[in-house]
Amino acid sequence: MRRLAWLSVALALVIAYPLLFSTPFQQRLGALVLLYAIAASAWNIVGGYAGQVSVGHVVFFGCGAYAAMGAYAHFALSPMVGIPAGILFSVVIAAVVGVPTLRLSGHYFSMATIAVAELARLIVTNTDYLGAAVGLSGPTVPRNVFDLSFISALPYYYLFLAILIITLGITWWMTNSRIGFYLRAIKDSERAARSLGAPASRTKLYAYMLSAGLTSVAGALYAMMFGFVDPESGLGILISVKMLIMAALGGAGLLFGPLVGAAILVPLEEISNSLLGGKGAGLTFVVYGAIIVLIARFQPGGILDLIKRRLEKYRKAPETIVAAGTSHAP
């Protein structure tokens, strides 16, 4: 009950944010937080819940972005029409890539996913149909509302919020289903899970495909908002890493972890760039890098994990100070 009440308050505040902070840049910042939260939450399904650290998720992001821009560039359709196509491509690619690579454990899977993403980037860079290195653009002037090309960030904000809620809803449903149960078992110990009869390979594959499809939606939304995609912005390794660090920073494997991570990192990035970037000394990234290092060093489980433990400690305070104190040690 208490949880539900807090959830409603938080939701109300998120809905009210762009009205409280109404300059165009603040609204856009809010929209970007939600956009990256969608991508990081999608990543969280396979990276957090299934414990399979994909460093190549940008390949699905790119599928969505290219499908959306391709629908416009080649068929003069609304970029929205590309969304289902992007999801389809992503799920197929996830299946093809996932069958061999999900057998690999830990770092091998990570490296294989990097290689897949780099391969995709290189192939697209040399494919004229996909705009090669020049990239694909969306409609320069919106023809109608279905082009989703707005001056204000407000419509994007609420669109992204709706999709984020759907993404989190799907994630929540998944964690409470049989798949979620299996995933937890696999993450703890794959061998044990297998011996107890959990279909480990199949479960991981399903999670990977689900994650891929949702990531591709984030990619399509990104391309529609910025009206452009090229190999670097749609398939660059940095985007994979961003999804990962947002989820890890907020708390991987926690429902709201990626949202918290995005809500910290996106403003940090944009504001430090706004304040320091113009000096041209690269200080933005010195600050950004230092903060990431500090969080990894002192809070490896993510921010939300820390808050959660603090809360537990606070609740249990009277009777179990000693126990909570020891569990808090990093």
Binding site: G106, V286, A296, P300
Partner: peptide
């Protein structure tokens, strides 16, 4: 030494942050 005890994600997070820190210093 400290991030080794954490999950693999913390290692990626920490060394990636270190990369940015070194590169831009």
């Amino acid at each position: 030494r400290d991030i080794m005890k954490g999950p693999m994600l913390a290692q990626i997070l920490g060394t990636f942050g270190l990369a940015l820190l070194l590169r831009y210093s």
